[in-house]
Design a protein around this nucleic acid. Structure first.
Length: 591
RNA sequence: GCCAACAUAGCUCAGCUGGUAGAGCAAUGGUUUUGUAAACCAUCGGUCGUGGGUUCAAGUCCCUCUGUUGGCUCCA
């Protein structure tokens, strides 16, 4: 962290204290918990007791803070003996502070470190704090902060504890920076996939169907199908074959795989009228192992590579479900290779290349980093499989990463249930970090399912499984795409690629003929023959972010040229019809 | 799940302290036949998310449920 950020964080932290001081004045009986600085400002957790605080109170609180700041109060530090501090807070009834102090006392006792209890006072308000703080409140620039929202937060982040009221504020060096940030928040809202999904008619939800169950419209499915076609096309080049498996299975499958334990309450149970109940599949891998297991395999058959795009289901907590970001019916693009130990490195390289191809075609590859996600060595019980296999896997992935120049960062505790993995992180156009593609090594699952092949020496051996996801779930990937492109998809993904607009009645037939010509060339086209002004039809097409708009009138009917209006441009260009078709087809082909 | 907020016409939203619902767009009908980001006129459209309560009177106040949004890792 650089010095400027440090200074800003000090200001944010001091503002948290000013917030607490304001609350103390407005609501004297409030119990104080903690108030640190965060990425965009600060917060403070309070226990208001029976007092109800709502959004309407935020303005009042902000006003009080400004009032306190105006008095230009100094922050003064004094050091107190721990037992005196505990007594002071106990007398004041500040149970959270008492708990904090007791924790500190215990910690110091265990570590043998010297304990120094600091108090910072600003005016009439004094708060337990290690600092540092600003010297005086005039260091806070006018208009550089804003109290924004109220949220619930469990004491110490533990849901067993009482829920406190958290008040958040944004804070920056000055008013300009705060305004900039507010502008960014607004821009992100304009790109929000839930908003654009509705406006561009890509997906919807129904109260009758239920939350977390998106319904894809014809236009949304165009995008989904194009993505699927693209992934399968690349994967086929690397020897993947498509399979298809049911959406449910006996729970025995997941007890054997270890997923039943891992997912627990997230498993959906399906009652049958007959003997056997089922669960909806939370992952794809176990089903695919059973295709492998369906017949004897020889070393000559390996590697065997399966892929599929099917739904899987997870019973997510209601509060976690949001738009396409987290759903309970997840369409997953998943693939597995079964291979010999000798083949593992090549398979991993193949998969990394697939990921590279796919993300390069979306223009996202340049902005990524790779995580070598290994196990949490302190908690081996979280994983299945033999430690020596884990060692082998982790070493192999490290070697591949090195050989391919991936500059992978080692992240402990990030491994999958059954093995270590390479995770690829990307940044979207508004700077949000997203982890989607992944390549995972797995010696454990084949052993659990007793998958075997016969090797050169006529011995039965377990294959290695390599899991891979390219775009993860279609739902989350579409969210990423919608927000990354702000709805202005590349031509190959655009639900409507060309919008044809008729000028008058006499041009309608010609528009339809032209549309047919485009359709025959596999170009997605829509005609607007409505009795409306050209300007209005242009406006609508622009709002739908269609890449190409053509206006057809007398001029075009009597010419071999088209007047093409590119998305984002207010100008038109004149181009021969056949050249235009060629141009689009070229664009679609090259992605 | 928990905390907070929100839910009014297909969409975006108005409706102040309680006095039985409004606008723009969309849709439909008509006029118009339009030349590159909103033609004109008319019509249709809502038991104000659900169920209950308070009141002479509820979109408005209270409770329940459903749905949506933000938050629940940040440790004096």
């Amino acid at each position: 962290m650089n010095k400027q950020n440090e200074n800003l964080n000090v200001k944010r932290h001091s503002l948290a204290h000013v917030l607490a001081a304001a609350i103390k004045e407005l609501y004297p009986n409030t119990l104080m918990a903690i108030g640190p600085s965060v990425d965009n400002g600060f917060y403070y957790d309070f226990d208001f007791g029976d007092e109800k605080i709502g959004d309407d109170d935020l303005k009042k609180i902000e006003k009080k803070m400004i009032h306190i700041l105006k008095q230009n109060i100094e922050f003064k530090r004094r050091v107190v003996n721990i037992n005196d501090a505990i007594k002071k807070e106990k007398d004041a009834g500040q149970i959270y502070k008492v708990e904090l102090l007791q924790d500190l006392k215990m910690k110091a006792k265990n570590s043998g470190e010297k304990l120094e209890i600091g108090y910072y006072s600003n005016g009439n308000f004094e708060d337990l704090c290690c600092g540092p703080h600003i010297k005086e409140t005039k260091e806070i620039a006018k208009g550089s902060f804003k109290i924004v929202k109220i949220a619930g937060a469990y004491w110490k982040g533990d849901k067993k504890n009482k829920m406190l009221t958290r008040i958040y504020g944004y804070a920056f060096e000055n008013k300009e920076e705060l305004d900039d940030y507010l502008k960014k928040v607004k821009e992100a809202e304009a790109r929000d996939h839930r908003k654009l999904g509705k406006e561009l008619d890509l997906f919807c939800f129904s109260n009758l169907v239920g939350p977390g169950l998106p319904l894809f419209t014809p236009k949304g499915v165009v995008i989904k199908d194009e993505l699927q076609k693209r992934v399968e096309e690349i994967c086929r080049e690397y020897g993947f074959e498509k399979v298809s498996t049911p959406h449910l299975a006996k729970i025995d499958l997941y007890e054997l795989s270890g997923h039943a334990k891992k997912f627990g309450d997230e498993l959906f149970h399906v009652k049958s009228h007959y003997k056997q109940d089922y669960v909806l599949k939370p992952v794809q891998c176990p089903h695919q192992t059973q295709i492998y297991a369906s017949r004897p395999r020889s070393y000559r058959d390996l590697p065997i590579r399966y892929m599929e795009s099917e739904k899987q289901y997870r019973d997510e907590k209601p509060g976690q479900i949001s738009g396409l970001e987290r759903v309970i019916a997840i369409t997953v693009e998943d693939g597995h290779t079964f291979c010999t130990v000798d083949q593992v490195k090549d398979e991993v390289k193949n998969m990394v290349n697939i990921i590279k191809d796919f993300y390069t075609s979306l223009g996202m590859w340049d902005n990524h980093w790779v995580s070598l996600s290994v196990r949490d060595y302190d908690n081996p019980e979280k994983y299945i499989g033999e430690p020596e296999d884990w060692d082998k896997c982790e070493k192999m992935l490290e070697e591949v990463a090195q050989e391919m120049g991936l500059e992978a960062k080692r992240c402990e505790g990030e491994a999958a249930l059954y093995g270590p993995k390479l995770d690829f992180m990307f940044r979207d156009s508004i700077g949000k970090e997203i982890q989607i593609p992944t390549v995972q090594l797995d010696f454990a699952t084949p052993k659990r399912f007793n998958l075997i092949y016969t090797d050169q020496n006529n011995k039965e051996v377990n294959p290695v499984m390599v899991h891979r996801a390219i775009l993860g779930s279609y739902e989350r990937f579409m969210m990423l795409l919608i927000e990354h492109f702000a709805g202005a998809f590349p031509v190959w993904l655009s639900p409507v690629q060309v919008q044809i607009i008729s000028v008058g009645e006499s041009h309608r037939e010609h528009c339809n003929d032209l549309a047919l010509e485009f359709k025959n060339q596999d170009i997605r086209v829509e005609v607007d023959n409505n009795d409306e002004t050209v300007g209005n039809k242009i406006r609508k097409a622009t709002g739908q972010k269609v890449p190409y708009v053509l206006v057809i009138g007398d001029k075009e009917m009597n010419s071999k040229n088209l007047e093409v209006r590119n998305r984002g441009s207010k100008e038109t260009r004149s181009i021969k019809k056949l050249d235009f078709i060629k141009e689009i087809k070229e664009k679609i082909k090259n992605k």
